[in-house]
Nucleic acid binder design. Structure first.
Lengths: 237, 237
DNA sequence: CGGCTTGTTGATCCCCGTCAATGCCGGTGG
DNA sequence: CCACCGGCATTGACGGGGATCAACAAGCCG
């Protein structure tokens, strides 16, 4: 039932990579693979959090549905990334809604299974904590970016993180469609289009999901540049 | 050295309230109280994370210093709240800079002390995880608010969370000065002023840190109202 | 080919940041 | 007791970034 490559993705995932071998075997047996098609919903915010997931193939979107009915993208995860750890272990409810952005395969394991092992294996608790910390860190950066940067700058940062090279020219393809990228960057598709148009003047060209950057250093500089003007957000000396 | 009330604050803190009594005694002995004056910096982002903190008295500001030198407020914590759990236990670096927004008293305990006990007491790991999850949840909401609401709406939500009553008229005082509130809500003091001015038309009056709301229901409705127009942020069916 | 989805572009509006002026308060020193 | 001052809050004028709405081009597929 488990394909060798798929097992390998779970084993090397950020969540499990530091878990010792014998324990990971147990966990692999305790969980199961679950297929989910593009557009399908895995769970919605407020659902009782029972399972922890690792993306094996495909792409999922974590979002919040606001009281007004909007759909705000909080994160997008690809193979090797995990979600639900903290909510499920704490025994709370999921704070976000998760939906497949592509046909995907997820490794699913109940929090009960995990916590059963935590007593004997504190390093498992550490793995969960480390993974949660990573999500926390991502969100902190997200908040920083949203509060402090323009759309074009956020796009530049996004491309910088994506590109295989750090300096000089470089070209690669976008990991998912522009509508979703727009959501992830906190803007509308139209604004993303305009942001790409802005970057064109900075040596970034795009044609059908393929991005070419003339100079990565320049792109990175852009994402770190000061917004027109700005000094202190808070008054504390 | 420990004042009874101060011990009580730590004991009842969100981080430790579910830790069994004998263990908490140990932890209280392992940590120490640390005084920090308004404007002083506790640590800066990138510092090796060694300690976990609980606010006993006062107020601290967690912020990010951007490459451009801005100071972006990520969270503000008062008595009973904690920070640094995940970073310190994971053995990483602090992702934010922490500064006292008032003269404050913090309970400080090294992550080493905590992890020494985790092997024997898995519930301690759970407490850390639960607390980290809470921070995660806060940030998710923060991202949602930033992406989806106007300044006046965020202020309305902030006041709603603060108010002692859920319905009808209500009056209370602001927990800290407006400059810091502005930062927390992701705007400039001037914009906060204008947001308050907007809310005045909705039955909210303010004079010198004292807020009076004519109708809490109306305020809450405002914070949940749809932004002029908005449908789907992402394209996933 | 015609419908459908996805991406681009233009016009317009509104929120918020910036800069500058003014008012309010608490403290200090005459 | 009051004049003066520095910090904080408010208000006005202005500009820019992004959302909205609408039109249109480009693929994709039945």
């Amino acid at each position: 039932m488990f394909d060798q490559n798929q097992i390998e993705v779970v084993r090397r995932s950020l969540l499990f990579r530091d878990v010792p071998e014998p324990l990971i075997e147990r966990l692999l047996r305790d969980g199961r693979l679950s297929r989910i098609d593009r557009g399908e919903t895995l769970f919605v915010q407020g659902d009782r959090a029972e399972f922890i997931y690792v993306v094996v193939e495909g792409l999922v979107k974590l979002s919040r549905i606001t009281p007004a009915g909007d759909d705000i993208v909080v994160a997008v995860y690809a193979a090797g990334e995990s979600f639900g750890e903290a909510a499920a272990l704490k025994g709370g409810v999921y704070p976000v809604t998760v939906e497949a952005a592509e046909n995907s395969l997820l490794f699913q394991i109940s929090a009960r299974c995990i916590s059963r092992h935590i007593g004997d294996h504190p390093e498992l608790a550490m793995a969960m904590l480390a993974s949660t910390f990573r999500h926390l860190h991502e969100l902190v950066v997200e908040v920083e970016d949203l509060k402090g940067q323009t759309g074009a700058q956020r796009l530049a940062a996004f491309l910088t993180a994506l590109a295989p090279a750090k300096e000089g020219p470089c070209s690669f393809s976008l990991p998912y469609d522009k509508g979703l990228i727009a959501g992830r960057l906190g803007m509308k598709p139209e604004s993303l289009s305009r942001s790409f148009a802005n970057l064109r003047r900075e040596g970034v060209t795009i044609r059908g999901g393929q991005v070419s950057v003339a100079d990565m250093g320049r792109l990175r500089a852009l994402s770190e540049a000061e917004r027109p003007a700005r000094k202190q957000a808070a008054p504390c000396a």
